Simulated assay, not measured.
Amino acid sequence: MTKLTDEVYTTLRRKIMEGELAPNEQLKEERIAKLLDVSRTPVRTAINQLTLDGLLYRERGRGSFVSAWNTEDIKEIFEIRIQVESKAAGLAALKASAMHIESLLKCSMKMDELVEKKPEDYLKNIQEENRKFHSIILKAAASPRLTKITKTLVEIPITIGFYIYSDEDMQRSMHHHRELIHAIRMGSQEYASDVMTVHLRAALCRFLTNRDIK
């Protein structure tokens, strides 16, 4: 995506996640282009990508609409993630190899660099590094059952991600990653599990706060 398209994509994704664009609301290219003061081309491209992401759906002859994922859906998904990924983090503390830890460090350092320098498409790249980070922990846990459950969660199209994060939120998340690496290095199952719980709970709270939900 071009820089302008990425900006449109990020803006629309944030509006969806914050509830400003409601489930089943129609997105009209012309109205969005006028609202964001851009041409329709980057809007069309961003809408196509959001559709591929599962955040929008199309109806023939009618256009694009916001997928019907509501707050309760996301809260339920995160509660399951907290249970599953906290367990995985604890197992990773017991089973992780030096290679796993080195890979986690590389992801963490890359994310720190992206947050500091904010290059073009940095939010998209942070999302990808974050996905890798959590995937490495799952691999280190070496549990086929947890892998299967997590794969199901990952295939659910809507994710909160970093698109609604402030700089402070971003720094807090990066700190959690470094703390997770430390816990895994220490070999403490309880420590790693607790840090992952806090990490995911903070992400959920950020989402709820942005939607002004108590």
Rank of each mutant, 00 (worst) to 15 (best):
E179T: 03
T152M: 07
K95Y: 14
T150H: 10
Q127L: 14
R185G: 13
M170E: 09
R206S: 04
V154R: 10
L123W: 05
A89Y: 02
E120L: 06
E85I: 00
E116M: 07
I82K: 13
A140K: 02
H100G: 08
K106D: 13
I137W: 14
M109D: 13
E113W: 08
Q83E: 10
K148V: 05
I77P: 03
K118T: 08
H177E: 12
F207R: 01
H100T: 07
C107H: 05
M186A: 11
S97Y: 14
R178Y: 07
L91V: 02
R145D: 12
R185I: 13
R81L: 12
L94Y: 10
V154D: 08
M109I: 12
T147S: 10
E129G: 06
L104M: 08
D194F: 15
I101M: 10
I82C: 03
R145T: 14
A183G: 08
L104S: 02
L94H: 11
K151C: 00
Y163T: 05
Y191T: 03
F162M: 04
R172P: 00
H175K: 09
A98I: 10
D194Y: 15
S193Q: 10
V154K: 11
T159I: 06
K106A: 11
E128P: 01
I160K: 09
H199A: 06
A88H: 07
P157R: 06
K106M: 01
I101R: 10
E155W: 01
K117H: 06
A183H: 04
I184R: 03
E76P: 01
R145I: 13
E128H: 15
D121C: 03
F162C: 05
Q127N: 13
D194A: 14
R145M: 13
I181K: 01
V195K: 11
E128M: 15
T197M: 02
R206M: 01
N125L: 15
L114F: 10
I158D: 00
E79T: 10
Q127G: 14
K124D: 07
A93V: 10
R185P: 04
V195E: 08
D167Y: 07
M174Y: 06
A141N: 03
S143M: 01
K106Y: 11
L105Y: 00
T152P: 00
T147N: 07
S103F: 04
L105V: 02
D121S: 06
V198S: 04
L138P: 02
I77D: 13
M109A: 15
A141S: 14
M170T: 09
R81A: 05
V84R: 06
T159G: 10
N125G: 03
A96E: 09
S173F: 05
Q189H: 12
E120S: 08
S188M: 09
H176E: 11
M99I: 10
I149S: 05
A92M: 06
K110W: 09
L153G: 07
Y122G: 00
L200N: 06
D112S: 13
V195S: 08
Q171M: 09
V198C: 03
T147V: 05
E113T: 07
M170C: 02
I126R: 15
E102R: 08
V84Q: 10
K148Q: 12
R178M: 01
F133P: 09
Q189W: 08
L208N: 03
T159Q: 14
L180A: 00
A141T: 08
I160H: 12
